[in-house]
Design a protein around this nucleic acid. Structure first.
Lengths: 112, 112
DNA sequence: TCTATATTTCATGCAATATTGAAATATAGG
DNA sequence: CCTATATTTCAATATTGCATGAAATATAGA
């Protein structure tokens, strides 16, 4: 809600706003809490290893993914809370100043 | 779900991924279906008119806002369906390949 | 028509981000 | 210790996106 929060959210959106990173996040989201090894992810996305690292670092810097090493492999997983908070923020203030609702799926139309 | 869809969504995220535009969308979302005149929005965001046009055009090109002229004024309004579709897409495939759920708020944890 | 207000367009310089290829580091296993 | 695999780092370049100021267009009203 605060003003700085927009900057934080904008940073997360910036991190997501790239075809490779978006596809990566969705693969990781689908993979669940265990996550996916970087190499496996790179195969699925058809992205070179160094490019993948580049993009994953952006996602990590934004707090959208985390990684752990397991032997030879580095597993990445989505940070679900961060993703959900993001979607909350996007539509959170929906219609708060309006007299009409913005539609049946409006998140604030439920509680009034 | 398709692969191209990621590009479309990435474009929408790119449009949102800027503090001014994010604040703008939230103001418009709060304003509801009627929307807000460009000048009024510019005042609230403390953004110069030409800069505001620049950002609103990005949002419009992504299908996240629409505009209509009313006399001297041009009203912008959020396209709520596009916003909701966006958030759906982000977490839509959550955990689909996983055995464990990603958490209590996981969108797919409800129906299984 | 003249003026004021609202909004958009255009042009330029600057900063941030992406892509690519080569090289470096880390771990596993023989 | 040597090799293979996995991942990251680094450097050069190209691209894209943003901010700023000046000018143009559109509408309303005197």
């Amino acid at each position: 809600m605060s003003h700085d929060n927009d900057d934080i959210v904008a940073r997360k959106l910036t991190a997501l706003a790239h075809p490779v990173r978006l596809a990566a996040i969705r693969q990781l989201a689908a993979a669940g809490p265990t996550g996916l090894a970087a190499g496996r992810l790179g195969e699925r996305l058809d992205v070179a290893p160094n490019a993948l690292t580049f993009h994953l670092q952006k996602l990590a810097a934004a707090g959208l993914v985390e990684s752990r090493r397991e032997g030879q492999f580095v597993y990445y997983r989505a940070v679900f809370d961060a993703l959900l908070a993001l979607t909350d923020h996007l539509v959170g203030a929906c219609c708060s100043e309006a007299e009409e609702s913005c539609g049946p799926r409006c998140p604030t139309s439920r509680d009034r």
